[in-house]
């Protein structure tokens, strides 16, 4: 096996911070997140709702709007920091070398533009194609993602497509310029189960085909198991554990990760008791002290409540931010 540490990462994120200035104070949606992704790999970001997954990836492309603000960190993509480069430089990268697919296909397509317009736009902006050439290319892309009779439908408006079809169209648009990095934010959450599987297969297939890097946000550990190389677990704006996919499932070391996995195992296997993680996700508001997960954690000590844990190496590529780091076996009843 290759030594991954020696491969130059495509994207290197260090200490990313984004907060929202809301009525009740500063909400630290992303609070010092670091990760990197290597060529040809799939990184999955998991975590409960509100843990900061979407804000993390949107911050990378500077898509955060008021009252939100990226306040710190670097995100180096091929040697240039996405967070400080000029708007022009960033606009040239967006949609060309880094693309994004969003959660809700029903609202992600512009209702007033034809699907051909939207799929071909990246080619016009970044490849300097003429309208006609780009439109012809859009037909090819639509065929590739499985839109039936793309030639006739390229001039249709989004309203005449189902949710699954629209997500395929979004994928075609996102992949039009063959991006090196594709970020997919819960691309299947809004779809029904059979459609979810189809879209995932499509993403996997296309990822293998253009050999790009995929960063995928998901709630679904089944998806993680089937697609991920690396997994990053987020809780309350921070990374709590990061490891290769096999290790996350075989030997999770953070009580939160262990809880997530135990919940899914119980759902799969009726003989196991269902233990959803008790309590509600912590909202990263105001000054914070100690481990954000401590109030919900069965292992929490006084140290957990007072000192914020930092990520430590517990394996060759496995990091965890926990003072206790309980053995995985102790979690299962």
């Amino acid at each position: 096996m290759k030594d991954l540490a020696q491969v130059e990462p495509i994207l290197n994120v260090r200490d990313l911070r984004t907060h929202f200035e809301i009525k009740r104070g500063k909400l630290h949606a992303v609070d010092g997140v670091s990760f990197s992704v290597n060529p040809g790999r799939v990184l999955c970001i998991v975590g409960e709702s509100g843990s900061g997954k979407s804000v993390t990836v949107m911050s990378l492309l500077r898509l955060i709007r008021r009252p939100g603000k990226v306040t710190g960190g670097t995100a180096v993509f091929h040697g240039d920091d996405l967070l400080t480069m000029s708007r022009q430089q960033l606009a040239d990268i967006r949609g060309d070398r880094i693309s994004m697919i969003f959660q809700n296909p029903l609202t992600s397509l512009n209702p007033a533009l034809t699907i051909g317009d939207q799929v071909s736009e990246g080619l016009i902006l970044h490849r300097g194609m003429g309208r006609r050439e780009a439109q012809a290319e859009a037909v090819k892309l639509l065929r590739q993602v499985g839109i039936p009779s793309p030639k006739e439908r390229v001039t249709d408006y989004p309203a005449s497509f189902s949710g699954g079809m629209r997500q395929r169209i979004m994928i075609a648009a996102a992949l039009s310029c063959k991006p090196e990095l594709l970020i997919a934010d819960e691309p299947t959450t809004a779809l029904d189960v059979s459609m979810q599987a189809q879209i995932l297969d499509l993403l996997k297939e296309l990822q293998a085909e253009i050999n790009n890097v995929l960063v995928m946000i998901t709630h679904d550990l089944g998806v993680v198991a089937s697609i991920a190389d690396e997994v990053m677990v987020m809780y309350s704006g921070k990374v709590v554990e990061q490891a290769p996919v096999r290790e996350i499932f075989a030997a999770p070391r953070h009580p939160y990760t262990q809880g997530l996995i135990a919940t899914v195992r119980a759902l799969d296997d009726a003989s196991r008791p269902l233990h959803p993680i008790p309590g509600t996700p912590a909202i990263p508001l105001g000054q914070r002290m100690g481990c954000a997960f401590a109030p919900r954690c069965g292992f929490a000590t006084d140290q957990c409540r007072l000192e914020t844990p930092h990520l430590e190496l517990v394996g060759s590529a496995h990091t965890v931010a926990c003072h206790v780091k309980p053995d995985p076996d102790r979690t299962h009843v």
């Binding site: 040239d92 967006r94 060309d96 902006l125």
Partner: peptide, 9 residues
């Protein structure tokens, strides 16, 4: 869809 367009460059 405006966010998506911005993300497209």
């Amino acid at each position: 869809y405006i966010l998506v367009a911005r993300a497209r460059g």
